[in-house]
C-alpha cells in the first residue's frame, strides 16, 4: 500500500514525519499501559508511600502487607473471586450450548419464519441496556432472585450476539451435506448437533467462550442491581465497596484490583488475536 513506494527516493521530511508518527503510536501505547503499571506499583507500596509527593514510580516491598490488609478489610475477597469465576463459567457454559444450538438451526435447518425469527433476535441487540435495568430489578424482586446468582446467570444464558456469531461461523464452515449424511446415518436431529456439529465448531466456541466469560466476569451493573448483601458480592462489587468517601487504603485497593484484573490479563496474553478477530468478525460482515 502506501509503504510500497520504498523503491522511490523519499523526500527528506518523510522520514521525520514517520518517526513522529511512530512516536505517537508508542506514546499512545504507554498511555494505555500506564494505569496497569501503576496498579501493580501501588499494590506493592504502603498507603503512606502512595500518598507522598512525588508518588512512587517503582515497585516497593509492601505487597504482602497490602494483601493482609485487604483480607482484614474484606474477609470474603477470595470467596468473591470464586463466586465471580463460577458465575462467569456457568454463564459461559450455558451460552455455548444454547447459542450453538440456535446458531446451528439458523444456519443449517430449513423452517418457516426462520429469517423473521433471526431478525427479531438481531433487533433485540438494538435495545439499550438501561431500559431493562429498572424492570429487571422489579422482576428479580418479584420472583425472589435478589441476592441470588441465578439472577446473573439465567437471563444472560443465551445471548443474541452469540447466536449471530455461531450462525455466521456454522454457515461458513459446515457443508449442508454433512448434516444430510448424518441423517442418512440414522442420526436424530439433536444427535446431529451433539455428535457432528458441536465437535466441528471448536474455534467459534472458543471465541464465544472468551467473549462471554470476560463479559460476565466484568459485569458490574448487573451485579449492582440484584446483589445487595456483602456475603454474595461478586468481585467488582467487593472492589467498589473498598472505595470510601475519605481515607481510601490505596495499597489494599490496588492489590485487589490487580488480582481482579490478572485472570483476564493472562487469558488475553494468550488469546488476544483470537478475541479481537472474534469480536470484529461480526462487525465487518454486518
Amino acid at each position: 500500500m502506501y509503504s510500497s513506494r520504498k523503491t522511490k527516493r523519499r523526500p527528506a521530511g518523510a522520514f521525520t514525519l514517520k518517526l513522529i508518527a511512530y512516536g505517537i503510536v508508542f506514546a499512545g501505547a504507554v498511555v494505555m499501559l500506564l494505569p496497569f503499571y501503576f496498579m501493580f506499583v501501588f499494590a506493592t507500596h504502603a498507603n503512606a508511600d502512595i500518598l507522598s509527593v512525588p508518588p512512587p514510580y517503582w515497585f516497593g516491598d509492601h505487597l504482602l502487607e497490602n494483601l493482609k490488609q485487604l483480607m482484614a478489610m474484606r474477609p470474603n475477597f477470595w470467596k468473591s473471586i470464586g463466586w465471580s469465576l463460577s458465575i462467569a463459567a456457568a454463564t459461559t457454559a450455558l451460552n455455548l450450548f444454547f447459542c450453538a444450538l440456535a446458531g446451528y438451526a439458523f444456519a443449517m435447518l430449513d423452517f418457516r419464519y426462520r429469517e423473521t425469527l433471526f431478525g427479531l433476535i438481531l433487533a433485540t441487540l438494538l435495545l439499550p441496556s438501561f431500559v431493562s435495568m429498572i424492570p429487571t430489578i422489579l422482576l428479580m424482586q418479584q420472583i425472589g432472585w435478589i441476592n441470588s446468582s441465578k439472577a446473573l446467570i439465567i437471563p444472560g444464558a443465551c445471548g443474541a450476539l452469540g447466536i449471530f456469531m455461531m450462525r455466521q461461523y456454522i454457515s461458513s464452515v459446515l457443508p449442508r451435506d454433512l448434516v444430510d449424511a448424518a441423517r442418512m446415518d440414522a442420526c436424530g436431529e439433536f444427535d446431529i448437533f451433539l455428535r457432528v456439529v458441536l465437535p466441528l465448531i471448536g474455534p467459534a466456541l472458543g471465541t464465544l467462550a472468551l467473549i462471554t466469560f470476560i463479559g460476565s466476569y466484568n459485569n458490574f451493573v448487573g451485579a449492582l442491581l440484584v446483589l445487595r448483601d456483602q456475603e454474595v458480592y461478586t468481585l467488582p462489587l467487593v472492589l467498589r465497596s473498598l472505595q470510601g468517601t475519605n481515607g481510601v487504603t490505596w495499597g489494599a485497593l490496588s492489590i485487589g484490583a490487580a488480582i481482579a484484573v490478572l485472570p483476564l490479563l493472562a487469558l488475553f496474553v494468550v488469546y488476544s488475536r483470537r478475541l479481537i478477530d472474534g469480536l470484529t468478525a461480526g462487525a465487518v460482515k454486518g
Binding site: P175, D180, A181, R183
Partner: peptide, 20 residues
C-alpha cells in the same frame, strides 16, 4: 420414514465425511 430407517444409503458430491 426417516432417512435412516428407509434402508437407503447415499454418497454425496462433497463426500460429506465427518472430519472429526
Amino acid at each position: 420414514l426417516d432417512p435412516g430407517e428407509r434402508g437407503a444409503a447415499m454418497v454425496f458430491q462433497s463426500y460429506a465425511l465427518y472430519p472429526h
